[in-house]
């Protein structure tokens, strides 16, 4: 006999730095380790219920080509195509997919010698725009660490700043 009001917990998938994960479970939560200058690219197709998260570290695969071949999720320009390909394989279609960007915080640097967060954000927006993808919403910059929860049921992104209770 099927119990009334059966509760099914939302499966939680942790996506660490330089990792990507894609699911077609209609009710899962993809979450990240703490984000600094790295960027999370979250994508969602509401029809196929495919959702994916990429947490990349660095802007360009030319920084370390050998490592990019081993793990495309390290870099924006190797990780983003890999994320989309995985989503397509699970039934997502580009025209239906929504894309969100989160992260790209920066340490204080008045000389412009080390702007990893900005470099990462530029690399991500550049590759997405070259491929005709418009970004629905971006949470970026600042000096705060962020934690992401991406709910694949509705494609909702919760962004929490470390040390604060509110969720954006």
């Amino acid at each position: 006999m099927t119990p009334v009001n059966e509760f099914k917990a939302e499966p939680v998938i942790l996506v660490g730095m330089a990792e990507l994960s894609v699911t077609n479970h209609p009710n899962s939560c993809l979450t990240t380790s703490l984000l600094g200058a790295g960027i999370v690219v979250a994508v969602h197709d509401p029809e196929s219920h495919v959702g994916g998260l990429l947490h990349f570290m660095l802007p360009r695969w030319s920084i370390d080509k050998e490592s990019a071949l081993d793990n495309p999720a390290l870099f924006a320009d190797s990780g983003i195509p890999a994320l989309y390909k995985r989503c397509y394989k699970m039934g997502a279609e580009k025209e239906r997919m929504k894309c969100y960007l989160i992260g790209g915080a920066n340490v204080m640097d008045r000389t412009g010698g080390f702007n990893l967060g900005a470099d990462n954000l530029n690399a991500a927006t550049d590759i997405l725009s070259k491929n005709g993808v418009s970004v629905e919403k971006t949470w970026s910059g600042g000096i705060e660490g962020r934690v992401i929860k991406f709910h694949t049921d509705a494609g909702r992104v919760d962004v929490q700043i470390r040390g604060q209770q509110e969720v954006e």
Partner: peptide, 25 residues
């Protein structure tokens, strides 16, 4: 330290609120 802070490794409420000094580079 700047690298680990930038990659969010064990950072707290202070987040990335630290100065990068190019003289170190």
């Amino acid at each position: 330290n700047i690298l680990c802070i930038s990659f969010g490794i064990g950072i707290g409420t202070d987040g990335l609120a630290y100065s990068f000094d190019p003289s170190a580079m």
